[in-house]
Design a protein around this nucleic acid. Structure first.
Length: 273
DNA sequence: CCTTGAACCTGCGGGC
DNA sequence: TGCCCGCAGGTTCAAG
């Protein structure tokens, strides 16, 4: 899944193809993904121009010329692919978007954990999907005092707290492990025990790892591909994720894998406290 | 309110 | 070769 850096990369890749272009045709090849496509989705977007493409949390937003906003989430394995229209359809190509200029984009999502829906500009902030989200980690609103306050009293592990989109958005399973390693904080530490001093290290670590990943064009696991079809290469820069048994890049201790909330965590038990 | 666990769905790699 | 198992980037819902 695309975490914040991958979604950001997808947005940037779609920008030159979609922004300013009119949607000539939008085809839904099934009736739902994680949630049903809403009534009128295709009709609402067809014939309208995409004025601006933006990321909010891990969602892609298409701001249309008529006050509507298309909302897309890539789930765990979703991809937006810019293709030659002559390319044969593949399994799991669920949504096809064709612009007036003839460009074609296919939303492919094998696991169907993604979604596509729409709302209006006026209803965007209070939309069910966005109403309870925390701040964007790349913004000024996400800082050490804020994080300490958000974690106050929480007994859950810091790793799980970082995955909680109500606290801060955009961080997923890979970057949670990576940020905690960079900050020297154990993923098992109770969230409420993260002091201001530790948060002053963790917050910049989160911003930096996300920024580094964006600069590298995102990570690519078995599924993630940039809209251009190129692979992101940040996975080569992972320090602990997926590296159980390999030496910690800081102290050479073997990286440990553990399970938290039914998901893998990777960390160094020596230099992360 | 918080925390935990299960559920959604498909594909892939490893072990036998 | 084929089958079974575990695992995979996220979110949401129910239950305690």
């Amino acid at each position: 899944m695309p975490e914040l850096p991958e979604v950001e990369t997808v947005c940037r890749g779609l920008k030159p193809i979609l922004e300013g272009q009119r949607i000539a045709r939008l085809t839904l090849r099934r009736k739902d993904l994680r949630i049903p496509f809403p009534q009128g989705l295709a009709q609402t977007l067809t014939g309208h121009r995409v004025m601006r493409i933006a990321r909010r949390a891990k969602y892609i937003l298409l701001h249309m010329d008529d006050d509507h906003v298309a909302i897309i989430h890539l789930g765990m394995a979703g991809r937006m692919q810019i293709v030659d229209p002559a390319t044969p359809l593949e399994a799991h190509d669920h949504v096809i978007i064709v612009t007036d200029s003839g460009a074609e984009i296919r939303f492919n999502d094998p696991r169907r954990f993604g979604l596509m829906t729409f709302t209006t500009e006026a209803a965007l902030d209070s939309h069910k999907l966005f109403a309870h989200l925390g701040p964007d980690p790349m913004g000024n609103g996400f800082n050490a005092p804020f994080l300490v306050a958000a974690l106050k009293g929480r007994k859950t592990a810091i790793k799980l707290a970082l995955l909680d989109q109500r606290i801060v958005v955009g961080i997923g399973n890979i970057y949670a492990s990576e940020a905690l390693h960079r900050a020297g904080i154990s993923p098992k530490r109770r969230a409420g025990t993260v002091t201001l001093a530790r948060a002053e290290v963790l917050v910049p670590a989160i911003k930096q790892v996300l920024q580094d990943a964006i600069a590298a064009g995102g990570s690519s696991l078995r599924d993630h591909v940039q809209p251009s079809g190129e692979l992101g290469y940040f996975q080569h820069a992972w320090r602990v994720y997926g590296r159980a048994g390999e030496p910690c890049p800081v102290c050479a201790t073997a990286v440990t894998r553990l399970v938290q909330g039914a998901r893998s965590t990777f960390y160094c038990r020596v230099c992360q406290r």
